[in-house]
């Protein structure tokens, strides 16, 4: 930690000075406040919604903003420093590649946590003051699931960064992956299910290949205690796996955090020439 922590601190400080990062955070705070207001207004009652209803509304917002934020910061992490030459200078110091990698990952993970904490925190305080209705547990659970989701996307972003040498290319690939995870994944899955008449079991597992779907199901399960509202796949999942689903979701999330990060490190380590 003697080396990892100073690098993590530097990353954290850089991220908090990054205009894009601040913009994402502000957008997230603003939209989450607006959503919480509208979620109850839509039901015919003006004013701020309670924690549970707001958490449910926030799932779709999180699905859009957080992967974009985590993927872009992850994609820039190594590629930008390599492009600027700062990575070679850093590695010319008495440090190892695993320390540099771990420091950068930890720093960016903490900055994402800080951003989410700020976004959810402000929205939470406003909600508590404005309505105070409902259990905050669903809200806290969503914050946790969102943090895990941001780590999965950060790991994928790191992998992109380790595979490219130019920051612009890395961000481009990051944006393409974001589109794939957010839109194309859903549409592709729907199209495949309709044209191939997929059985519900296969549909469930195919959708679980997308970490964003895992987040959505895990969050709904936490808030609603059932996946019935997701239709046949949700009903099948509940009947077939029941309470085991939480473990399945956690394992899949852990897979998406660990495997891309590990692959990114292996690539970074094997790249050799800087």
């Amino acid at each position: 930690m003697k080396i990892v922590w100073p690098i993590a601190q530097k990353e954290l400080r850089d991220a908090l000075h990054n205009r894009w990062f601040l913009l994402y955070t502000i957008a997230f705070i603003g939209l989450s406040l607006a959503l919480s207001y509208m979620s109850l207004a839509g039901a015919g009652i003006a004013g701020f919604a309670g924690f549970g209803r707001t958490a449910a509304s926030l799932i779709n917002l999180v699905l859009l903003i957080i992967p974009l934020m985590a993927l872009t910061v992850g994609a820039q992490s190594l590629a930008q420093e390599q492009e600027q030459g700062t990575l070679a200078y850093l590695l010319a110091q008495p440090v190892t590649r695993i320390e540099v990698f771990a420091g950068k990952y930890l720093g960016l993970a903490l900055s994402l946590l800080a951003s989410l904490g700020l976004g959810f925190g402000i929205a939470g305080v406003v909600l508590a003051l404005a309505s105070g209705a409902g259990s905050p547990l669903a809200y806290v659970s969503l914050v946790w699931q969102t943090f895990l989701l941001s780590l999965t996307m950060l790991s994928v972003g790191f992998l992109v960064s380790a595979l490219t040498k130019r920051s612009g290319v890395a961000i481009g690939i990051g944006l393409f992956l974001w589109l794939t995870f957010v839109f194309l994944g859903d549409l592709g899955l729907m199209g495949t299910a309709i044209t191939m008449r997929l059985p519900v079991e296969q549909l469930l597992w195919l959708s679980l290949l997308n970490p964003l779907q895992v987040f959505k199901m895990a969050s709904i399960l936490d808030i609603n205690a059932t996946l019935d509202l997701l239709g046949p796949a949700g009903i099948y999942a509940m009947q077939e796996y029941g309470e085991q689903l939480r473990g399945v979701f956690l394992a899949l999330t852990a897979f998406w955090i660990v495997v891309p990060a590990l692959a990114a490190y292996v690539r970074f380590h094997l790249r050799g020439d800087l």
């Binding site: 070679a88 200078y89 010319a92 110091q93």
Partner: peptide, 14 residues
């Protein structure tokens, strides 16, 4: 590298 101080050709600083 602990025994080396390095001054690069192209200044790459934060």
């Amino acid at each position: 590298r602990q025994r080396i101080g390095y001054v690069p050709q192209e200044l790459a600083f934060y």
